[in-house]
Design a protein around this nucleic acid. Structure first.
Lengths: 227, 227
DNA sequence: AGCCTTACTTGATTTCGATCAATCAAAGCA
DNA sequence: TGCTTTGATTGATCGAAATCAAGTAAGGCT
């Protein structure tokens, strides 16, 4: 449906805790709240496309947003996956340029949008916003570097193991947890075909990992850490 | 030898044209020049290591700096390669955290270093610096996304072809140009083993590409564009 | 509940690129 | 200049994952 609206109490709350706004002073928060527009997106809705002039900055309030690039013959490569509280780094274009990737709601999602020209005006007056953007982007650059090196250095089961270890409170004990999104999304995030993820999970069974649906049980985290 | 010094006339000139300082107002430029320290690095010198507390921001004045990540058993994966005028995005850590990758001079290089705490202080007072950092990082994030999708969607010869096309003024005519660094570096940048790069070049011979040393001749750019 | 769509798994095949090994070329250096 | 070191090529083998092709499970909807 994608209706547009001013942020209500619930959305303001989520935004305040988001990576971007959490570190801002009250006045900058107010300025950003002023220009925020909330959008309710159905699954598969496109937020912006690679090559379009960039006009809006986006933050995720709920759901997951997939960012990908296309090749000439239409194949897609996921480059980042954003969840609740995340600033969509690919939408930070303050210099009047274009989006360099496409963003799509991977499931029904709530997002906040900010007019980029106005964001730039605020950033030019209020350094705390510009610094917050810098910090968010430098963290995302680090994540992108980690993905790149992960792809190049590790096999599919190793990448899956690392993902599982990173997404459960790293204790020495056995633990269960729930995947936050469907496996095909996870596969894309890890740079794998869904089949490869499936095979990685079944290979990890012999290392104490059991999966049923989105539920994952890790019998021996240490075993995973050793590969 | 790595001697430290204040920037002289030549270094100031290069810095002024660098991506980071070019867009700043005169006062911010002055503030940054004030804290700049020039370093002359021999090949293979490490600028900073993954995991160390981040204390300095780096810009390249001449030469190339390779940024990579290590895996447990010491294998390296290049995640970015910076040349003259580039801000080393991996060194932008304003929040007091640690470096997330290692930077090494790929050849003798001249760099400018800036104390990160002071950079943060300046950025907190002068929005133009913070915005310039944001712009630099968002461009680098776009590059990282491009590398990721390139790795995932294209074969070695395709990646090499795209590199060649991007690094020569995209005309329809035949053209010659010189690789800016050695092939093993290019291989790393493209996520390839040196052998794979070599094989890609010899495969591209049948598509009008001739290589001798660092000299590359492209007979038919259109043929490359078609894969 | 049942149906229908979408997600996931499993198997067989093939392709790509890493790796190992051996030359070959080139570039500093005495 | 020749010598030594480093970088580049070529060949042969191997392994990992993409792709193609069924088939199975799960989830949404009326």
């Amino acid at each position: 449906m994608n209706r547009l609206m001013k942020p209500g109490a619930r959305e303001r709350e989520t935004l305040l805790n988001s990576g971007l706004l959490a570190a801002l002073g009250v006045e900058s928060v107010a300025a950003m709240m002023e220009i925020a527009v909330i959008g309710n997106l159905p699954a598969r809705q496109i937020l912006f496309r690679e090559g379009e002039p960039a006009d809006l900055l986006h933050c995720v309030l709920s759901g997951y947003i997939r960012v990908y690039k296309l090749d000439p013959d239409g194949r897609e490569a996921d480059v980042e996956l954003y969840g609740p509280g995340d600033l969509i780094g690919a939408s930070v274009v303050l210099d009047g340029g274009r989006y360099t990737a496409t963003a799509q709601a991977a499931e029904p999602a709530l997002i906040a949008r900010f007019d980029l020209k106005r964001v730039r005006d605020i950033a030019n007056r209020r350094p705390d916003l510009a610094v917050a953007l810098t910090n968010a982007l430098s963290a995302q650059l680090a994540k992108a570097f980690a993905s790149l090196s992960n792809d190049r250095l590790h096999t599919a089961p190793q990448r899956v193991a690392r993902y599982l270890l990173a997404h459960c409170t790293a204790e020495g004990k056995a633990i269960s947890f729930r995947l936050p999104y469907q496996k095909s999304l996870l596969a894309g995030k890890l740079g794998l075909a869904p089949e490869a993820l499936s095979r990685a999970f079944s290979m990890l069974r012999s290392h104490g990992v059991n999966v049923r649906g989105r539920l994952v049980h890790i019998g021996d985290p240490e075993a995973l850490r050793r590969l």
